[in-house]
């Protein structure tokens, strides 16, 4: 792989119109994320983490500045191009899992591959492989309503990972999970990061997540307040957060 960064953000602001003019959810963000990073946007609620993640995921457009994801300028993509970028390269993990309720676990995970028009047998193999990795192969036929919160989030991870995307954006993935499940999920993602080289970008204010991050980007009031890369030992030792 080349050293080309996965995400480049140059002078990005995102303003929301409010009654008294406009409110800057993000101001003048400069950020580069390299391939294979396991990093996180960390900050209190309302600091702009979700907004930035949505901009990177091409679900939203910045008011000013430039965002380049996997070599593509996101602003220059039309709706179709943005959808294609998400379909081909990005994986999303949400706080609320957002599984499709009428689908089985298998069908939920299969969905991104259907969009990619992958053939049936390959789909099956890929889905079962990733379900194996998140430890849910035996629940393939269940529906989301029959699963615990931790299991749902593992399904969501499998759905995000099944197409081996270049970049996974995870917004507060542990917010609805207890400590045990949070650790399992992070272990799973860390393993996938190591095995497949997938770049992970989190948005979180959960210490349990922060201790796994190799790079912590602290957001405060829509600005980057701190950007710290931590060494391997610190991560595996489980350095606590304490950033705010």
């Amino acid at each position: 792989m080349t050293a080309e960064p996965v995400i480049v953000i140059n002078g990005v602001s995102r303003l929301y119109p409010v009654s008294s003019g406009s409110f800057a959810a993000l101001s003048d963000i400069e950020l580069t994320i390299a391939a294979g990073e396991f990093s996180g946007l960390v900050g209190p609620s309302g600091s702009g983490k979700t907004t930035l993640l949505n901009l990177i995921g091409s679900l939203d457009a910045p008011t000013s500045g430039e965002i380049i994801v996997l070599g593509q300028k996101v602003q220059e993509l039309d709706a179709r191009g943005a959808a294609r970028l998400r379909r081909d390269q990005l994986g999303f993990i949400f706080q609320t899992y957002n599984l499709l309720p009428v689908y089985t676990v298998f069908e939920n995970v299969e969905f991104p591959l259907l969009l990619l028009q992958m053939e049936r047998q390959k789909r099956r193999d890929a889905v079962m492989d990733i379900l194996e990795r998140v430890g849910l192969a035996d629940r393939a036929g269940s529906r989301p309503a029959q699963l615990s919160g931790g299991e749902c989030q593992r399904v969501a991870i499998a759905r995000a990972m099944v197409k081996h995307p270049s970049l996974v954006l995870a917004d507060e993935p542990t917010a609805n999970l207890d400590a045990d499940n949070s650790h399992r999920i992070l272990q799973t993602m860390l393993t996938l990061n190591r095995d497949l080289g997938t770049t992970f970008l989190f948005a979180t204010h959960d210490d349990k997540v922060i201790q796994y991050l190799r790079r912590v980007i602290v957001l405060f009031d829509g600005r980057i307040a701190q950007d710290e890369v931590r060494d391997e030992t610190a991560v595996s030792a489980g350095t606590p957060g304490g950033y705010f």
Partner: peptide
């Protein structure tokens, strides 16, 4: 609505 948002995040266009 949330399901639609999810589908779009997964790469479905509005047209689709």
């Amino acid at each position: 609505r949330r399901e639609m948002g999810t589908l779009m995040a997964l790469g479905l266009t509005r047209g689709a």
